[in-house]
């Protein structure tokens, strides 16, 4: 029979052994376990998301025909506007590519837009992530930019079989290269705090001293295209306050993010297309 003192210490000894074993377990094994546990969890969240969609469908079914007709007319007006915009964009894209060829500029990364429904949002005080309903089954790579109608949503953090996790732009660990609208100087953006009942915000650093921004005259912050992940010109948010940094060389300040990010239901993942240059030449 084991002495009583050993019996009392047994839980702590077991804990120590398991912790040591966990530290020496290969990363591949941990990665496999993480994926396994997530794939076990994914159907639960996806099912809950499906139930929400059904609820929405039946709530929409209660709308009267007159409301649907009015919505249809509004949509027709919007479609007419978008058709016009598409034609203008096609003409401008042609002009841009002609000028790029003329000036021998390097080609830009092209993207395939993949729309996806949001399965679950998880915005706590420690991290802000969301799960979307498309994964490796749609060839979505890790690090792909995610956008919505209001600008940047975030970046794909993990890809699973038929879902993927997106690190939100408001996530404190999120950093990206940015620039001011109408300016080319690079700035640094980092996700910030998300106060209760208040809008999500971020921080901008290395802003040149000549730039000013106030709540009454904010400056739009966009992606710079540096780093190769996000295409340039996507809206990040509005700089509403700028103060000189402690070293006096630059300014830093707060960025107000789009409030629609908090209740987002549909996003678009930009999947980089492999161009002929990326494909290795045959021997």
């Amino acid at each position: 029979m084991l002495p009583k003192r050993f019996d009392q210490a047994q839980p702590f000894i077991t804990l120590g052994i398991i912790v040591l074993a966990w530290l020496i377990v290969p990363t591949v094994f941990k990665r496999y376990m993480r994926l396994s546990f997530f794939e076990f969890q994914a159907p639960l969240d996806t099912a809950a998301s499906g139930v929400r969609d059904v609820q929405e469908f039946w709530s929409l079914r209660t709308r009267s025909r007159n409301e649907l007709i009015e919505a249809g007319i509004d949509l027709a007006h919007l479609n007419a506007k978008y058709e016009n915009s598409i034609q203008q964009n096609a003409a401008l894209a042609g002009e841009v590519s002609r000028l790029e060829e003329l000036l021998k500029l390097p080609s830009r990364t092209e993207y395939r837009a993949e729309a996806a429904r949001v399965v679950r949002r998880d915005f706590n005080g420690w991290w802000q992530t969301m799960t979307i309903r498309k994964g490796s089954n749609y060839d979505i790579p890790v690090g792909a930019p995610v956008i919505f109608v209001g600008g940047v949503v975030g970046r794909v953090r993990e890809v699973h079989s038929y879902t993927c996790e997106v690190a939100m732009i408001s996530n404190p660990g999120m950093r990206l290269a940015a620039t001011l609208e109408g300016d080319t100087r690079p700035l640094s953006y980092q996700g910030g705090n998300n106060p209760t009942f208040g809008p999500a915000s971020g921080r901008v650093e290395f802003v040149p001293l000549d730039v000013t921004a106030t709540p009454s005259s904010p400056r739009r912050l966009t992606t710079s295209g540096l780093g190769g992940i996000f295409p340039p010109g996507l809206t990040i948010g509005l700089i509403v306050r700028l103060d000189p940094s402690t070293d006096g060389l630059f300014k830093s300040g707060d960025v107000k993010l789009d409030p629609r990010l908090d209740s987002i239901e549909e996003v678009t993942v930009l999947v980089p297309l492999q161009t002929d240059k990326d494909v290795p030449a045959a021997p």
């Binding site: 702590f12 966990w22 993480r34 546990f37 969890q41």
Partner: peptide, 26 residues
């Protein structure tokens, strides 16, 4: 581990602190 699988932390973080707390309570 289940909580860790979808959390933006090192895999095993929640499992470790849950195990420690479990041992203390036990």
């Amino acid at each position: 581990l289940f909580v860790d699988s979808s959390a933006a932390v090192y895999f095993g973080f929640h499992a470790l602190i849950f195990a420690i707390v479990h041992v203390i309570i036990y």
